[in-house]
Computed example of a mutant assay.
Amino acid sequence: MTDMTGWSVERLHDAYSQALRIDRVLYDSETEHQRIVVFDNATFGRVLTLDGVVQVTERDNFIYHEMLTHVPLFAHGTAARVLIIGGGDGGMAREALRHPLEQVTMVEIDAGVVEFSKQYLPGISAGAFDDPRLDLQIADGAEFVKTTAGGYDVIIVDSTDPVGPGEVLFTDHFYGHAKRALAPGGILVTQNGVPFMQGEELAGTLRAFGTLFSDASAYVAPVPTYQGGFMAFGWGTDGAARSVDEATLRARVAEKGLGFGYYTSEVHKAAFALPGYIKRLVPDPA
């Protein structure tokens, strides 16, 4: 929500909120699915909120997008086809398309998010929407994974929080359909919020992953505007990609010749070393 003093106050969690000063509103509109607001903030640059909840900022989006994209892609090593569920701002596609992939399919439910992101947040996508390898589908991601022929090496679920249109992307049925859409040895990664504040969100995802995958776990990164500490990313695969050694990762990064603001091969390995309060949310292997 936006209060009368010019602050955007996020009240996602009970008894705890954060506020970002609104220096200038660039966009404020209701779509069929949600209220979209873009505003300038002196610290974080342009900020996108959906129904009052911060989704992405110009200043710190690189941490989230790099970790949710490059961890599975470098761990896999030979990915050719990637599916992104959500990600309408284009940041996830931006990072994925830095790899020599054959195709990235992006399924976003709200065309309004894509269109205003192109206009008001062009630096987030950085030309990704013009890349011929990007197949943009305006559709319900949950319905898409039910019917797709699959064969994806990596599936990235860049969802909102499990309320409103994003709620269905946190169900056992969705995860089951997503697994079916993976190629052999494929990896499914998910946005799972801030476990200190939203522990059940990660625990629920990993309970489902534990029944679907031989390797079900999580990794973390600190994103300043996602309040409450480390952000968690769910990880599911039937392959051995999580055990790839740091030297191999370093060689893969060097081969691509890519530079990053947050991701490194060392950070990749360390991200799976979970703090105790998060590790307790990960089911023990059967």
Rank of each mutant, 00 (worst) to 15 (best):
S8R: 09
R24Y: 09
T237F: 03
L169Q: 00
K269R: 13
L249N: 05
E102M: 00
L83F: 10
S214Q: 08
G45K: 14
I85C: 07
F272T: 11
T211R: 14
P165G: 01
V145N: 12
G204A: 03
D172E: 15
V220P: 06
R242M: 15
D172H: 15
G228Q: 13
E102P: 01
V82I: 11
D172Y: 12
R11L: 06
S214G: 08
A149Q: 10
G87V: 04
V282A: 11
D135R: 13
V47L: 11
V25F: 05
R81Q: 13
G150H: 09
G91L: 08
T5G: 01
Y263I: 02
L83T: 03
G166T: 03
D135L: 05
G86K: 12
Q191M: 13
T225A: 03
H33A: 03
L249W: 09
V168F: 02
R35K: 13
D89G: 00
K146C: 00
R59Q: 10
T5H: 05
A128N: 06
Y263K: 12
K118L: 12
E143Y: 10
D158K: 12
Y152D: 03
A232W: 08
D131E: 04
V56E: 07
G228C: 06
V47I: 15
E255V: 02
D161N: 14
Y120M: 15
G176Y: 12
W235R: 09
H33G: 01
G77L: 05
P224Q: 07
E200L: 07
T31L: 04
L50G: 14
A75Q: 13
F144S: 02
V47D: 14
V163K: 06
F230V: 04
V82H: 14
R250D: 15
Y16S: 10
A80Y: 08
T31P: 03
V163H: 10
V107S: 06
W235T: 00
I22Y: 12
L121H: 10
A178S: 03
Q191G: 03
T105G: 02
I36L: 15
S125R: 07
A221T: 02
